[in-house]
């Protein structure tokens, strides 16, 4: 009895996740289902399953036979224009704000580290909210304006750069690393995918360990790119 129910649930979830363009491998589903409380409504179960899946590495959790991945030769810089016809699910490995100099981004991070932010010319001391530890960096005041350049990875592990042609809601430097996007009908120019709100669906999610590492290194990566020597003072 319980077994049948579990099979049913598994099938439902697989269908639901596939409809969101993240069809799970049966192995992943089998490790997921026993951890769920089956007596809660289906809608809640779907949400939980999607949330858990978005926190995983696509290459491990997605059934590659059921999804499209980047075509061969997508990164070819010789190709002026190609079009991606099908839905392709990807995860974000890196986000870069190319609208501002790295120096000014480092400066903003350092001001934040000192617990300061500026409002006009006024320097404001930011008092960390105890209920809000860790999320202060993500507050909208720090949101970058872009355009952003993203490093995207499909389920097979192919990495391609994406360029935000028009600002996509939900994408800025506070977006989590490991977040998932579904691309549909995108143009690829010289090996770079051009991203627009109309052909990008932001599923969200986050891979905790990747995100943490990325944020820890963000400042030194920016400094390196800008050519700032450490201990320049």
């Amino acid at each position: 009895m319980a077994n049948t129910e579990m099979q049913q649930t598994t099938a439902f979830l697989a269908t639901y996740l596939s409809s969101r363009h993240v069809p799970p491998t049966s192995a992943w589903l089998q490790t997921l289902v026993p951890t769920l409380r089956l007596n809660i409504p289906m809608v809640a179960l779907q949400k939980t399953a999607l949330f858990r899946l978005l926190a995983t590495d696509l290459m491990v959790s997605i059934d590659k036979s059921q999804v499209s991945t980047f075509p061969v030769g997508i990164t070819d810089p010789g190709a002026r224009e190609k079009r991606l016809r099908s839905f392709i699910t990807v995860q974000i490995l890196d986000i870069e704000d190319i609208g501002r100099s790295r120096w000014s981004q480092v400066d903003a991070i350092e001001a934040h580290e000192r617990g300061e932010t500026t409002k006009g010319r006024e320097i404001i001391r930011v008092i960390p909210d105890e209920n809000d530890v860790g999320t202060t960096l993500n507050s909208s005041a720090d949101a970058s304006h872009g355009p952003h350049k993203l490093l995207l990875q499909d389920a097979r592990g192919t990495r391609v750069y994406g360029l935000e042609l028009f600002s996509i809601p939900g994408i800025d430097t506070s977006t989590s690393i490991g977040a998932k996007l579904v691309l549909k009908d995108c143009v690829v120019a010289r090996g770079i995918i051009l991203l627009e709100p109309k052909n990008v669906e932001v599923l969200g999610g986050k891979i905790e360990s990747w995100d943490k590492q990325w944020r820890n290194n963000q400042k030194s990566v920016l400094k390196e790119k800008a050519g700032i020597r450490e201990n320049a003072a």
Binding site: R80, G99, P147, L163, R190, I192
Partner: peptide, 20 residues
């Protein structure tokens, strides 16, 4: 409208699409 960007490749791609 974008002023300028700090990524040469991105600008080249956008420029090429203007020319096209």
């Amino acid at each position: 409208g974008r002023g300028h960007l700090f990524d040469r490749m991105a600008v080249v791609v956008l420029f090429e699409r203007c020319l096209a």
